[in-house]
Amino acid sequence: MRKKEWKVVVTFETTTSAMGMEKFCKEKGLPGRLIPVPRQITAGCGLAWCDKSEAREMLEKVLNEYELPYQNIYVIEI
């Protein structure tokens, strides 16, 4: 089993939004990656964006500033 760590997880309503997030972050040079939605949370789309928990504030700012469609932001231990 992988050792659990606190992570920020961004969820989406559609695969399209998740793919859009990945493309955006890659273009901006932001770290993180798409993961399957962890079972502690529920989301529309099965893909979620995951980064270290410290990135929460930055991600929330970016999501709102660039009007990227997302469902929720969580900080959870996974």
């Binding site: 695969t15 399209t16 793919m19 493309k23 798409l34 399957p36 789309c45 099965g46």
Partner: peptide
């Protein structure tokens, strides 16, 4: 959109 492994993501990227 089915699964989050590399092959599924490659398809997702192409579609997007």
């Amino acid at each position: 959109g089915r699964g989050a492994h590399g092959a599924a993501l490659e398809a997702g990227r192409m579609v997007y």
